[in-house]
Nucleic acid binder design. Structure first.
Lengths: 193, 193
DNA sequence: CCCTTCATGTCACTCGGTGACATCTTGACA
DNA sequence: TGTCAAGATGTCACCGAGTGACATGAAGGG
């Protein structure tokens, strides 16, 4: 129940942060401001988040784990393009569900260089995870060929492109159509291994 | 000739920075240290570089322009996979030439999260440039289909994978072989448009 | 009722990064 | 040669991110 309080404070902080950052822009909001709004001190903020960027990027952190889990759950015989498409579709669907909030966060990230950089770095981790899972799935040695890594990279590249178009159109374009379109392009490379 | 002096100071600064950063690690070196080593003040450092990361990433900055230029220079009828492979090969060849220095810089970037993040962000810019060039090359509307962006992303993705392997093997693996291997994987998607 | 533990606040500090201002160089021009 | 304008630099003061040390205070367990 101490644990419950921790999660409560964390929520309060992300809430305050997203609100303020979306409203005034990344650089115009200080951590003191965020912390005070959430009712804690600046020091406490840093006990929950490692950096100012983290409070935003963390908001999307589970996506990586979700994707890997979905990939691991796909049937063994399924073609890589199909399996990866389903894996990438999971976080996209999550976005589409909470489109109000998710859209604002994604736009904030893509438009703020500091956040975008951190986001890409995190994605590099996802890519390695996906590559490992894919290699395991196909019975390949992850360190010999480049295929697993390239395939995972292509999937995430598609993910980024979709996210970009989706946020650029203010949620107007249909994410599912975009994903299918993107995977139609990359599938020939994914499925010829 | 004032311009020549500026370039001289800039060189002095990057020199000092790369030396110290590679030696002691990114976080263990202050900007005061770098500036003093180069014989200028901290303030002057920031008149040449926007941030601590910049002095390292800038070192690879021309790569983006080089790639785009090479892509623009490839014969019009050439298949995308071939043209992009040559474009990506340019910075790789540059690395292989100055392998002593380039290797240390690349390793520093890939191992330092803050630098890696900035590097990826810069690459996103390269990707958009490449995508624009590719769209122009193929007579496509850059904003309608996802192909140009995905193709550029795949090429850079291959670039990253090669860089990663090359630096991970301390320059042991042959970059040219790695590039061919990587493009053999992604070519089916690049050339089916 | 005490004691331990854990979260928090406060304080002081380092360092990245910026704006303002004074100084110094340098080259142009009379 | 003397002067003036422009640009580069140093100094100083400042803000904000991030960290370490320490004291406090609340919850739970004996």
């Amino acid at each position: 129940m101490a644990e419950r309080k921790r999660r409560l404070v964390a929520n309060e902080l992300t809430e305050a942060a997203l609100q303020l950052l979306a409203l005034k822009g990344f650089d115009a909001v200080t951590i003191d401001e965020i912390a005070t709004t959430a009712g804690v001190s600046k020091r406490t903020f840093f006990r929950y988040f490692a950096s100012k960027e983290d409070v935003v990027v963390q908001f999307l952190a589970d996506m990586g784990a979700d994707m890997r889990a979905e990939l691991a759950a796909r049937p063994a015989g399924e073609r890589p393009a199909e399996a990866l498409r389903h894996a990438v579709a999971v976080p996209i669907a999550t976005c589409a569900d909470h489109s109000d909030r998710a859209l604002r966060v994604v736009q904030l990230i893509l438009r703020t260089p500091a956040l975008h950089a951190r986001f890409l770095e995190r994605q590099a981790q996802w890519r390695d995870d996906l590559a490992a899972e894919l290699a395991h799935r196909l019975g390949l040695d992850p360190d010999s060929g480049l295929y697993p890594r390239l395939a995972a990279g292509m999937a995430l590249n598609a993910f980024d492109a979709v996210l970009d178009r989706w946020s650029g159109s203010d949620g107007g374009e249909d994410p599912n159509e975009l994903i299918e379109h993107a995977f139609a392009v990359i599938a020939p490379a994914l499925d010829t291994a």
